[in-house]
Measured scan of single mutants.
Amino acid sequence: GTVKVQGITIKVPNPDKAYKIAKKLAKKYNLTVTRKGNTIKVE
């Protein structure tokens, strides 16, 4: 899958794990995490 952070896309082998990490970071930096299948977008 991929993770998008402010325009940066990161390929990740485990979208579930990445999503959990993204959620933690999002809370810390007051961002929104959206997930569509293997693509995770943080904005």
Rank of each mutant, 00 (worst) to 15 (best):
N38A: 05
P13T: 13
Y29V: 05
T2M: 12
K11L: 13
G1P: 08
I8L: 11
N38G: 06
T9F: 07
K4F: 13
T34F: 02
A18F: 14
K20S: 09
G7D: 06
V33A: 03
K17I: 14
Y29M: 07
I40F: 06
T39S: 09
I40H: 02
T32F: 04
T2Q: 10
I8S: 03
D16V: 06
E43L: 08
I10Q: 01
K41H: 12
K24C: 15
G1T: 07
P13D: 13
K28C: 14
I40V: 06
A18H: 01
K17Y: 14
V42S: 01
G7M: 08
V12G: 03
G1D: 05
G7T: 08
N38K: 04
A26K: 05
A22M: 14
G7A: 08
E43W: 11
G37R: 02
G7I: 13
N14V: 04
N14Y: 07
L31V: 11
K28G: 04
G1H: 08
I10W: 02
A26N: 00
T2K: 11
K28W: 15
T2Y: 14
K20P: 02
I10M: 05
D16T: 07
G1Q: 06
K23W: 03
T2R: 09
K36N: 11
A22G: 04
K20I: 14
G1L: 11
N14E: 03
K23H: 05
K17Q: 12
G7S: 08
L31P: 02
N14C: 15
T39A: 08
Y19I: 08
K17S: 12
K23R: 10
I8R: 08
Y19M: 09
Y19L: 10
K11W: 15
R35I: 09
K24W: 14
I8F: 07
V5I: 14
K28N: 05
G37F: 02
N30K: 07
L31G: 03
N30L: 05
T9V: 11
A26L: 11
R35Q: 04
P15V: 15
V42F: 13
N14I: 05
P13M: 13
K23D: 03
Y29H: 09
V3N: 05
K27D: 10
K27R: 09
V12T: 06
K11Q: 11
K4N: 09
T9H: 09
V5P: 04
N30P: 07
Q6Y: 13
Q6W: 15
K11M: 12
G37I: 02
K17L: 15
V5A: 05
I10N: 02
D16E: 09
N30S: 05
G7P: 05
T32C: 10
T32P: 00
T39C: 14
K4Q: 14
D16C: 13
I8W: 07
V5E: 03
G37D: 05
K11A: 10
Y19F: 10
N38C: 14
K36L: 11
G7F: 09
A22D: 00
Y19C: 13
V3C: 15
V12Q: 02
V33S: 00
A26S: 06
I8A: 04
V42Q: 01
P13R: 13
I21Q: 05
T34N: 02
A22I: 15
Q6M: 14
K27T: 06
K4S: 12
L31W: 10
K24L: 12
I40G: 00
K4V: 15
K27Q: 10
P15Y: 10
I8C: 15
V42T: 03
V12P: 05
K20N: 12
K24A: 12
G1I: 11
A26G: 06
N14R: 05
I21A: 07
T2W: 15
I40M: 02
P15L: 15
L31Y: 04
T39V: 13
V3G: 06
A18T: 03
I8N: 02
I40R: 00
I8H: 09
I40Q: 01
E43Q: 12
E43N: 06
I40P: 01
T2G: 05
T39M: 10
T32G: 02
G1V: 10
K28T: 01
R35K: 09
P13I: 12
K36I: 14
I40A: 00
T39H: 09
N38E: 04
A22R: 01
Y29L: 11
I40L: 04
T9G: 03
K17T: 09
L25D: 00
I10T: 02
T32A: 06
G7Q: 06
L31F: 10
K28R: 10
I8K: 07
G37E: 03
G1E: 06
T2E: 12
T9D: 07
N38F: 01
